[in-house]
């Protein structure tokens, strides 16, 4: 077929950022997948609860301390996370570096708290279905913290190399921050479910 040029794109920017970028949409799609997974885990929890004569099965309700501390830390981590997003948008390298170091640390703290959360539910995964689903939810969320932490660590290293000062990298930092918001956001319903639903 013959071609006829009808549009000149020379002046169009060479990198789409924010919601114009395919990566942003990809991240969103993966969040949708994982969000569905979390939602299903909660549905399973409620389903098993509806079948059990007594809930939690043969064990006291979970102790609140560790889980609540977790919630506080995660919610608090949103503030520096927002700052990092802003710095990445402004392509402010020193601040982004600093922010990433902070976020790496803030990724490690929840993992430490999580170690205390598992005993706080007073049941092991192989005792009964209640234990199984609670451990599944905690486990699922832990893997998300862990993967985001590793991603943050890799990005932090990357931002200290010569590859750092690049719009694409700042985009990655922003997307990573968006993913952390997601990790925090999914925790809230899980927290409510694990710690408060049995107290209703």
């Amino acid at each position: 077929m013959r071609e006829r040029v009808v549009l000149d794109l020379s002046d169009v920017t060479s990198h789409a950022s924010g919601s114009a970028s395919p990566t942003w949409w990809g991240t969103l799609a993966f969040m949708l997948i994982e969000g569905t997974g979390f939602a299903l885990a909660i549905v399973i929890y409620l389903y098993l609860m509806s079948l059990a004569p007594k809930w939690p099965i043969a064990t006291p309700v979970p102790s609140l301390t560790a889980g609540t501390l977790m919630t506080i830390v995660l919610v608090a981590s949103l503030a520096p996370n927002m700052l990092v997003t802003g710095w990445a948008k402004k392509q402010d390298l020193p601040k982004v570096r600093f922010g990433l170091v902070v976020m790496s640390l803030l990724g490690i703290v929840p993992l430490i708290i999580r170690v205390f959360e598992f005993p706080a539910v007073h049941v092991s995964w192989d005792r009964n279905a209640y234990g199984s689903i609670v451990w599944l939810m905690l486990g699922l969320h832990t893997t998300h913290i862990l993967t985001d932490l590793i991603e943050t660590l890799v990005l932090t290293c990357l931002m200290f190399t010569r590859h750092a000062d690049n719009a694409r990298r700042y985009g990655d930092v922003a997307d990573n921050a968006m993913y952390w918001n997601f990790v925090v956001a999914t925790w809230l319903p899980i927290y409510a479910c694990i710690y408060w639903v049995p107290r209703l």
Binding site: I44, Y47, L48, I57, D126, R127, N128, A129, Y130, L136
Partner: peptide, 14 residues
């Protein structure tokens, strides 16, 4: 593999 009870009615699964 690790003995959870999601589908075991004897231990509250279904």
């Amino acid at each position: 593999l690790v003995g959870t009870h999601f589908f075991n009615p004897a231990e509250g699964g279904d």
